[in-house]
């Protein structure tokens, strides 16, 4: 359809003049967005600042040597001992128990999802497992205290205490299964089919291919998932606060222990005035926790990077 030239443009004045307001608006919007991104930077600074500030105050009254080497933690008493290793022990014990559950179960589940399950099964099983990670931890704490501990007491360990590391650790392990399973499964799935086919062609069975070829090939991703799992366990609070108790001691699995996180919650739920030594202890313990999880995250990040480089 022919259009004549004179029909093509509008009269002058119908278009708005290019305004400086438009440019200003653009720049203002960019500033707003940039500020939003830098909130995250501020958050990190905030965390570091708060932790350092109070920890420094703490170490003015308690020697760092005592903090790191003393074998007693009795912060609430007048001449208390501040040996953080007791709390770290509590964290490590519960974490160890959790990993003893989560690692094999998570890895085996990952192998199932990656090597054995049909894609239809995988499509709903994987999200189903994720539900485990979505349950609030207070619910797990309740479960550990009111179900798992009595169960253990009535069956295997009649001498188990009401608050004990084992129940908390076991339930924490269940919670962490999806973390290990999900990340490991991604790594396993990413192993190229050609590797598997090569092994099958040599007469290997499915199990042998899975365990001797695919798992070693996906090892960095699996290790990364384990480190991630450990990090989650170390940072976990409610399960241990409810089920492992508040007794800071070098107890066994059947006894009560107190983790770093449980201690912080214990003090915070009481009425602790700002500026007191007790108040500062939660930051000192928090600092210890932060450093540990930071190291763990760095290690896991490094492993993920190694894993990505192998196949891309």
């Amino acid at each position: 359809m022919a259009v004549e030239a004179r029909d093509v443009r509008s009269e002058a004045g119908v278009w708005r003049r290019e305004s400086r307001a438009r440019h200003f608006r653009e720049r203002a919007i960019k500033v707003v967005f940039t500020a939003c991104a830098y909130v995250s930077v501020l958050t990190t600074f905030g965390i570091v600042f708060v932790l350092i500030f109070e920890t420094v105050g703490f170490f003015r009254q308690v020697s760092i040597v005592e903090f790191l080497t003393s074998t007693q933690w009795s912060a609430s008493f007048a001449n208390g001992e501040f040996g953080v290793m007791v709390l770290v022990y509590g964290t490590l014990l519960t974490t160890l128990i959790a990993m003893l559950v989560a690692l094999p179960v998570g890895l085996l589940a990952a192998i199932f999802l990656s090597e054995y399950a049909s894609s239809r099964l995988r499509r709903w099983l994987k999200p189903a497992l994720e539900v485990l990670a979505g349950v609030p931890t207070i619910v797990y704490g309740y479960f550990a205290l009111t179900f798992v501990t009595p169960l253990l007491r009535d069956t295997i360990f009649p001498n188990i205490q009401i608050f004990n590391a084992l129940s908390a650790g076991l339930v924490m392990g269940i919670m962490i299964i999806p973390t290990i399973a999900s990340v490991s499964e991604d790594s396993l799935y990413a192993v190229p089919r050609s590797l598997r086919e090569g092994a099958y062609a040599l007469g290997a069975t499915k199990r042998e291919v899975a365990t001797r070829v695919v798992v070693p090939a996906a090892l960095s991703g699996i290790v990364a998932s384990v480190v991630l799992g450990i990090s989650r366990a170390v940072g976990e609070t409610m399960i241990v606060a409810v089920a492992a108790g508040q007794l800071a001691q070098f107890g066994g699995p059947l006894e009560s222990v107190q983790t770093m996180t449980a201690y912080i919650v214990q003090v915070a739920s009481g009425d602790t005035a700002r500026g007191t030594l007790t108040y500062q202890t939660i930051f000192a313990v928090g600092m210890t926790l932060f450093v540990i999880t930071l190291l763990l995250n760095i290690i896991s990040y490094w492993f993920v990077r190694r894993f990505r480089e192998t196949y891309e």
Binding site: V50, T237, G286
Partner: peptide, 14 residues
């Protein structure tokens, strides 16, 4: 990856 309780400490302090 920072534990949620650390955010609590941040909130408390700031």
């Amino acid at each position: 990856g920072v534990p949620s309780i650390i955010y609590g400490l941040l909130g408390l302090g700031i």
